[in-house]
Design a protein around this nucleic acid. Structure first.
Length: 779
DNA sequence: TATATAGTGTTTTTT
DNA sequence: ACACTATATA
């Protein structure tokens, strides 16, 4: 590969980013600006022109898919294999480090990785240990709280030390017990994988030094999505002046609810003084009209580096905005447009995507697509590994690899049913706790524990089953054969096969499908192997970390052309010729939970920006006057994001049946998104609900032409009650919020859009609210 | 221990 | 609307 060749393939900024020399480099890559191209070419350039061995480059992505694509593209650029690489997700790379060096922080190399549901089970166990009522401390909420602590890298001890209230102390205790259970089960959750590597490095300078010298170059993709721990990890490895190249787009940061911290990318230059910053603003995906809408939307956010996408291609078609009466009309409009274009022969179903903020919006659209015989696929439904029957099978495998794995043991101890009930399990757990040994050790030596005498036979049966499977593992020549034996010997598929229901058949089929997962894994191995046992741990790790949809199987024809239905979050990184953004109503998108503070409203706007920039040549936006959500039909107003788009950029498609005659404002009003917080409450559905039948009846659908409803934001909303809300507060003050409950003000700061108050709520954690809108009451 | 019933809570979810 | 879960009951 010659540098001259790169010049002809890449634009000026891309070229500069790819060939930049040593030291920190920040690439701000706008949507569709060739980010992946830069990453892959930079990797190839380092290898081919600067003679860096691939093994000395750490390339981190967020998804397995991205890692796989990156690797393949590099190989095709270089035209040769790379050998052993460090191209992987944060979790895959950390897993690899921990399998090797985890013993330095007290983990056995066969540790199990817990996903969401096992983690939740562990929280339940922790609550039980602490005698806490699940009603009072919902496991999901507790897990979320623990997640927040982990996001901010706090240990249970840190939480306890800083605990100001009783509930915070309870949180700390649950967190501590949760960690204790994980540790004694030789398990980690996803967050722990990152945190533990940070811990490993912090406590073992020699190990850190080893990896620092190993990774001569570090590339990180989607940097705007890193959380604090990941940021810390990268900085430990790269140092202040290391050869760290991060690529990302602050305008596409949409995962803050999972701990992603937009500051990591925005303050890169602060952390790495003298860093080179390159902006990629030329867009190769969308038409000019689409980019104009995207640019105009995102420029309303103030906390950003500021980029403006441009294209050398023409303006293309105008975006079409449909004001529909209800979700049925919206769905029919979408289906109709798709049908029409496919019939004309200039598009196939896979050219279309329907994007929405919340999954609940998809159901209405699915119904109509099905009725009109339009093939579609829904992204991000039930994942293969999330299915009960697969989890059961995996739990068997995990117990074999790591008998200390308590959540997995509990999962399978009575699957298939063998008469071991909750009481017995609780007793085992108590005995295990008293003796400080794993539950499986108790089962191994049932004779020693009189409490368990009654279920002795049954437990012995379970123990013998596990032991027998262990022998089979040692004897099986291949992984697939072994797993087949596990299925047969345990009989987990049998009970499904016997009940002869469609669901049972599907579950049995899924279990068989798991064998294609093992086969695929075996095919992917570079070399052959001696026995199932030799690759077993590696296989389990790939199962734990491969949570995406690639191997879901089941669905008949993967190549068939279908419309894609997906949330905007899952659509990030994808592109489609024709994109529909459905459900553009205030309270749906933006979500009504985002009205509380500016930070989340900005994130909603970034989400809208991501949605718009998925479209290549045609964008459709739709909004409903009435929508049924969670079983209730309510009136809604058009999304503020719709109303923020200048009128001249939209072509209206109005059936005349919508209750609002939507007219976007002519001139751009920067304050609009915040000026009408008072009117965000959905309208009460006093008007006749939309017709239940799929064809809206023309009688009930008479449009309302009352000017007040045409421009609802000009209605002066009377105060909800006589209650007075605080207009100024000070640090330390106790306040009450209608949703978050009571809390203490920890910070007050003036911003151009109002007064930002930071409040630590007793039960809801820390929130930043805009005082003017937060409706706080004094206590 | 298995099944019926009432009650609940629903933003987004790369690993 | 709907799915999941805690509880009551046989």
């Amino acid at each position: 590969m010659l540098t001259e060749d790169l010049k002809s393939i890449l634009n000026k900024e891309q070229f500069e980013a790819v060939t930049y020399g040593d030291g920190p480099l920040l690439v701000l890559a706008g949507a569709g600006s060739g980010k992946t191209r830069v990453l892959t070419y930079r990797y190839a350039y380092l290898v081919d022109c600067r003679y860096v061995p691939p093994y000395n480059i750490l390339a981190i992505t967020f998804t397995n898919k991205a890692a796989g694509e990156m690797k393949n593209r590099i190989i095709s650029i270089l035209g040769e294999g790379l050998g052993d690489t460090w191209i992987g997700t944060f979790h895959a790379c950390c897993g690899r480090i921990l399998r090797r060096h985890g013993d330095a922080i007290g983990y056995d190399s066969h540790f199990t990785i817990y996903a969401e549901s096992e983690s939740l089970e562990t929280v339940r166990t922790a609550l039980k240990h602490l005698d806490l009522d699940e009603k009072q401390y919902p496991p999901r909420m507790m897990r979320a709280i623990i997640g927040k602590y982990k996001d901010s890298m706090m240990t249970p001890e840190d939480v306890l030390r800083e605990a100001g209230s009783y509930s915070e102390r309870v949180n700390a205790n649950v967190y501590r017990e949760y960690q204790n259970i994980l540790k004694s089960s030789n398990c980690m959750d996803f967050d722990d994988m990152i945190l533990n590597v940070v811990k490993l490095f912090r406590e073992n300078q020699n190990i850190l030094d080893y990896y620092r010298s190993l990774f001569q170059y570090i590339l990180v993709d989607e940097y705007q999505d890193t959380n604090r721990a990941q940021h810390r990890l990268v900085n430990m490895l790269a140092g202040r002046d290391g050869n760290l190249c991060v690529v990302g787009d602050d305008d596409q940061s949409i995962y803050s609810f999972r701990g992603a911290d937009i500051d990591n990318i925005l303050s890169f230059e602060k952390h790495h003084p003298g860093a080179k910053v390159i902006k990629l603003e030329q867009n190769y995906r969308s038409t000019g009209n689409i980019l104009k809408i995207a640019n105009d939307l995102i420029k309303k956010n103030s906390y950003r580096t500021g980029k403006r996408l441009w294209t050398s291609s023409g303006p293309g078609a105008k975006a079409v905005c449909r004001m529909a009466a209800d979700h049925n009309e919206e769905a029919e409009f979408i289906a109709g447009e798709i049908k029409k274009r496919v019939a004309q022969g200039d598009a196939s179903y896979s050219d279309f995507a329907v994007l929405y903020r919340i999954n609940a919006v998809s159901t209405g659209i699915e119904r109509v697509l099905t009725r009109m015989k339009i093939p579609y696929r829904v992204f991000g439904g039930m994942k293969f590994y999330d299915r009960k029957e697969i989890k059961d099978l995996v739990a068997y495998l995990r117990v074999l690899a790591n008998p200390a794995d308590e959540a997995s043991l509990r999962r399978i101890i009575n699957v298939p049913k063998r008469g071991i009930g909750d009481t017995t399990v609780d007793n085992i757990s108590i005995v295990a706790g008293e003796n400080g040994i794993p539950m499986f050790e108790v089962i191994r030596k049932i004779e020693n524990y009189p409490i368990l005498a009654r279920s002795k036979e049954k437990l012995a049966g379970f123990r013998d089953l596990i032991v027998r499977l262990g022998v089979i593992l040692a004897d099986s020549p291949t992984l697939t054969e072994f797993v087949q034996q596990v299925i047969d010997v345990t009989g987990i598929a049998l009970e499904y096969e016997n009940d002869h229901t469609p669901e049972g058949d599907a579950k049995a089929e899924n279990i068989r499908e798991f064998l294609s997962v093992t086969r695929t894994f075996e095919e992917g191995l570079d070399e052959g192997y001696e026995s199932a046992g030799a690759v077993f741990p590696e296989f389990l790790e790939s199962v734990s970390l491969n949570t995406d949809l690639d191997s879901t199987g089941g669905d008949d024809d993967p190549d068939a052309s279908r419309v894609t239905l997906t949330t905007i979050h899952s659509a990030k990184g994808l592109e489609f010729p024709v994109v529909f953004i459905a459900g553009l109503e205030d309270g749906v998108f933006p979500s009504n939970q985002s009205f509380e503070d500016r930070g989340s409203m900005d994130e909603e706007r970034r989400l809208m920006y991501v949605a718009v920039t998925r479209a290549m040549s045609q964008l459709f936006l739709s909004s409903c006057s009435y929508r049924m959500l969670y079983g209730k039909t309510q009136g809604y107003k058009p999304s503020r994001f719709l109303r923020d788009i200048p009128a001249e950029d939209l072509e209206l498609s109005n059936s005349g049946r919508g209750y609002f005659d939507y007219r976007p404002r002519q001139s751009y009003d920067f304050s609009s998104s915040y000026s009408d917080f008072e009117s965000v409450r959905p309208l009460k559905a006093t008007a006749p609900a939309p017709a239940k039948t799929s064809k809206p009846s023309p009688v009930t659908a008479a449009p309302v032409r009352d000017p007040a409803s045409v421009f609802p934001r000009f209605i002066s909303t009377p105060p909800a009650s006589a209650a007075t809300y605080l207009t100024d507060v000070e640090k330390g003050e106790r306040v009450r919020h209608k949703k978050f409950g009571d809390g203490t003000v920890t910070k007050v700061e003036k911003a151009d859009n109002g007064t930002v108050v930071e409040i630590v709520f007793d039960n809801a954690g820390m929130k930043r609210l805009i005082l003017e809108y937060a409706k706080l009451q004094a206590l």
